[in-house]
């Protein structure tokens, strides 16, 4: 869908929700569910917490939809609510958001052998498990860029980070991923 028709369909949906049509809201949920999953599931692993968060996110969307000004895509705006709600949750739980070194060393040692047996020679599985070991912000950025295929500008709008910061976090994350995968393969060859 191109930008114009996207914003036109956003407008129709928002107007319908504002006039009390809950079916229109159900369509919005269906359309944005994947993006929200990409953000929430990358940041929060506990399923019960995911359920609470998803409800909280969409309730916020429903209650604030009258403040949406169509300056971005509706999905970007919802992605931003999902991102910030998840960040708040992690901050409350005092989970480090950026601490790349500490997190990477610990998790790598903990899960390495088991995962190696399970996913031997399956690069994309190894890569996915390595992505999941990254700190929350980094893995979210990686999945938004590479799996959701969003441009840096849209990721910046979702996260509220400057575009340059998004870019440099992505560089760092990819570098760590590459090094970890290389060491993973090297270990397997020994």
């Amino acid at each position: 869908m191109n930008n114009d028709s996207q914003s036109f369909s956003d407008k129709i949906l928002v107007e319908k929700v504002l006039s009390g049509n809950t079916q229109a809201f159900a369509i919005i949920v269906k359309q944005t569910e994947r993006l929200v999953a990409q953000i929430v599931r990358k940041m929060i692993t506990n399923e019960e917490d995911q359920k609470d968060l998803v409800q909280e996110i969409y309730l916020k969307v429903y209650q604030r939809i009258n403040t949406f000004r169509f300056q971005s895509k509706l999905s970007t705006w919802i992605g931003s609510i999902a991102y910030h709600t998840s960040i708040n949750y992690l901050e409350k739980k005092k989970i480090p958001l950026y601490d790349i070194d500490a997190l990477h060393e610990n998790t790598f040692v903990q899960h390495d052998n088991a995962e190696k047996k399970l996913f031997r020679n399956e690069t994309s599985n190894i890569l996915n498990s390595e992505i999941n070991k990254l700190p929350p912000i980094y893995k979210t950025l990686i999945s938004l860029y590479h799996i959701e295929e969003l441009p840096n500008k849209e990721i910046a709008e979702i996260t509220g980070l400057p575009e340059g910061t998004v870019k440099s976090y992505l560089y760092r994350a990819r570098k760590i991923l590459k090094e970890n995968i290389e060491s993973n393969f090297k270990d397997q060859l020994i």
Binding site: K30, R41, V54, S124, L127, S143, I147
Partner: peptide, 19 residues
């Protein structure tokens, strides 16, 4: 390999829960 990673999805019915 990134292209082969399946996108995340919830294990529960989001629409039902939210609506």
């Amino acid at each position: 390999s990134m292209n082969e990673i399946r996108p995340e999805s919830f294990s529960f019915d989001v629409s039902e829960l939210v609506m």
